[in-house]
């Protein structure tokens, strides 16, 4: 039966590889995807409107800023839902599950994590702040930042990580991220534009309209990064300990 199940796998795999030969070449300007009026508008106008070299970031944070804002809200709601379900479901200090044993933190792993975590966090800031020029942005930087806290929780235990980034602070940072995002939108509304119309920020920033959009995108990415970092860690802390917030994986 196991061998028979391989037949459809290889059949579908072969079909997919066969279909991949019909794709247009990498970076071909005549391909249907980049030939449509929408794409050609973005390709032609992004550099002029926003001075951002990475079109994906410009579309994500500027042209479709409303969409991204509510994506961030969805991430926040997911974290809140997990918290609401798990927070009071298990009594603290209740009996350990029967397949768990005690384990001390490993000396080599903890010392290596001590060395690596600052580097990871600097890399996360780099990914977050460099999202305009190279691939990256708020979501990716937030995930890497959250991974660094998860690494601390893994190599010591959950209490050590929660002493550095407690759950209350987690939810505060997550809410602050959305407030930063929405605040930039509302602020540009007060300055006379529409919601999330970053170009109006030129009145307070000493730069041109295009560069105002560039810098506002960075602010928006910082908001997204805050929310994703906090929610990543809160999800890990709750799911790995079934809401008890002790012991962990």
């Amino acid at each position: 039966m196991k061998a028979a199940s391989m037949v459809p796998v290889f059949l579908v795999g072969f079909l997919l590889v066969f279909a991949a030969t019909d794709f247009p070449e990498w970076g071909n300007p005549q391909s249907p995807a980049s030939d449509s009026p929408v794409s050609s508008h973005f390709i032609g106008k992004t550099g002029v409107d926003t001075e951002v070299p990475n079109m994906v970031t410009a579309v994500l944070a500027d042209y479709r800023g409303f969409d991204t804002m509510f994506e961030t809200v969805v991430v926040f709601i997911a974290g809140m839902a997990v918290l609401a379900i798990l927070k009071n479901s298990v009594k603290k200090g209740s009996v350990r599950r029967d397949h768990e044993v005690d384990a001390e933190p490993d000396l080599i792993v903890t010392n290596m994590v001590r060395l690596i975590v600052p580097v990871i966090q600097i890399f996360a800031f780099y990914v977050l702040a460099h999202g305009h020029v190279s691939p990256g942005g708020g979501f990716q930087g937030g995930v890497i930042m959250g991974a660094s806290f998860i690494l601390i929780a893994l190599s010591w235990d959950l209490e050590t990580a929660l002493a550095r980034f407690s759950l209350n602070r987690c939810m505060g940072v997550a809410a602050a991220g959305i407030l930063i995002y929405a605040g930039i939108g509302i602020f540009s509304m007060f300055l006379g534009g529409e919601f999330l119309d970053y170009a109006e920020l030129e009145r307070v920033l000493p730069v041109s309209r295009e560069m105002a959009r560039y810098h506002a995108m960075l602010g928006v990415e910082i908001g997204v990064g805050c929310t994703v970092t906090a929610i990543m860690f809160a999800l890990y802390a709750n799911l790995s300990s079934e809401g008890k917030l002790e012991g962990g994986l």
Binding site: D106, I108, M112, L115, I116
Partner: peptide, 15 residues
Amino acid sequence: FIFLSTPTSSHALMR
């Protein structure tokens, strides 16, 4: 990074 991380993960797996 690989010089630091790969031996550490090998050690953790071995343990």
